[in-house]
Structures are given as C-alpha cells and as structure tokens.
Simulated scan of single mutants.
Amino acid sequence: MTVLLSFHDWGQYKGVEPVFILKNWHEIVSDPYYAEMFWRTFRIAILTTLLTAVLGAPEAYILNRMSGRWKSFFLLVILGPLLISVVARTLGWALLFGGNNGVVNKLLMSLGLISTPIPFMFTETGRVVALAHVMMPFMVLSVWAALQRLDPQIENAAMSLGAGSLTIVRRIIMPQIMPGVLSGAIIVFSLSASAFATPAIIGGRRLKVAATLAYDEFLNTLNWPLGAAVATLLLVALVLIVVGSNALIERRYAEVFR
C-alpha cells in the first residue's frame, strides 16, 4: 500500500488523488535536497557502524574470556540498553549532552581531553554517539557468538610457539571474529539508517534524515505520497545494501576457505 501510495498525486486543497504518476519520484531524484538527506542518513549509519565495531569487538572478546559469574553480570550490563525504551535512552543522552554545560563536556574538560566544549545536541556527532550506544548490544552479541567457535587453546599454542600479542590478534583472533563483525555491521547499519527516535530527539528538526523526513511529509505537510516515496526508497536502498553486502561477504569467505 505504501509503494502504491508513492505513485499518487497530492495537492494542498485536493488532498491525495489515486492516480498513477511519477511526480514524487522525479522530485526526489531531481532535487539535491533529498540527495543530501539520504547521504546524511547513510553517513551517520556508516559512522555508527564503525564506532560500534571498534568498541564492540574488544568488548565481546573480553566478555568471552571472563569466568561464568562475571560473564553473566556483564552480559546483563551489555544487554541493559535493550531493556529500556529507545526514547528513554535517547532522552538520557540528551540530558548528558545538555549543551556546552552538559555532563559529557564537563567530564571531558575535567579530564583534559578537550579545551572547549564540543557541540553534541543537534549535530551529527551527538547522533552517532547516541546511536552507537543504542546499537552496541547487536554488535557485541554478533561478535560474541562468533567467538564461541574459537578454541582458546589455539591462542595458547601460538603463544607457546613464540607469537606475540599483536600477531595472535592479527593472525588468529581477527580472522575468526570477522564473520561476527560483518554480521553485526549489517544489523547495526540497517537499524541506524532506519532509526527515527534517536535522530529526531538528538538531531532535532534542523538535521533531518530519511526517517524524520518521511515523518514530516506524512504528519506535518500531509503530503502522504511524497512521504511514501521517501520511505519506499529508503527500504529499497537498505535491501540492496544488505543483499549486496551479504553476497560480497559470502563470496569472500568462500574464496578463503576453498
């Protein structure tokens, strides 16, 4: 129904007309405003994915090496964000950011990491940080699942043969956890690109992404056909990216293990 709606016409006084036209699609393709919206959407999703991979993979490795009791406790800590509403989590980040006098800026300045406050609210930086916190459990669980197939004795054998820590990480651990990292990256990227609550609260109305743009077209301007076209294009783009990524990953590992 949403796809069909994207081909309908709309007017301020006539409303939605069930006719088959390409006006909405032509507007999206020809107007650079929409290109910027989608580029911002995928840019934020890519940065969020990279941040979760850099932080989540070591977290999963440390979690995997923990003993039973501590592993259960920290697994609950990692899964904690999933037990809280995404709106509540995002509002918590908004309170932490809190402009130039927010908790995060005060902490960074007290540690001497920055000399001037960093603008987090209504910026892409704040969106990436908040989205990374929301999406981190998906990356950690994906890498942790891959680590379950890793035999710890292989690391001990490499160490007994004189391999250093960096060599063990590069030659043994990384190849084993890469399928988990890539699987987690696909999940995080898809959820980040289609996220609505976090970009809307942290980014506000000034930095729109595809999800908030579709929301505004549906509920503010009431141009349902244009909002449907934006939503459909986002879905198609995500499907193509996920399917293409899966095909490349499968081909890559088929060549490695052939």
Rank of each mutant, 00 (worst) to 15 (best):
P81G: 05
L113N: 02
R43Y: 15
R127V: 06
I168P: 02
S194H: 03
A146G: 09
S192F: 15
I78M: 11
M109C: 00
A229C: 15
A228W: 02
A53F: 01
R251N: 06
P137T: 01
L4R: 15
G98Q: 07
S190C: 07
L63E: 02
L182W: 06
G92C: 05
I84K: 07
V77F: 13
V104M: 06
L113K: 03
L147F: 02
M109Y: 02
M159H: 00
L166S: 04
V19D: 12
I154C: 04
M178K: 03
F196P: 11
L55K: 04
L91R: 08
V169I: 12
K23P: 08
I241T: 02
P179Q: 07
R206P: 02
F120G: 07
G15E: 05
L233D: 09
E59I: 13
S190R: 04
L108E: 01
T41R: 14
V29E: 00
V169D: 00
G126S: 09
V54H: 06
L111A: 05
H133S: 06
I46G: 07
P119A: 15
L22C: 01
I186E: 03
E36M: 10
V230I: 10
T167N: 04
D9K: 08
A185E: 06
Y61P: 04
A35V: 08
P225W: 15
N64R: 15
K208N: 08
A214H: 06
T221N: 06
L182T: 13
G244V: 09
P32L: 03
V104F: 08
E124Q: 10
V243T: 09
H8M: 15
D151H: 09
A60D: 13
M139L: 14
T212V: 14
L79M: 13
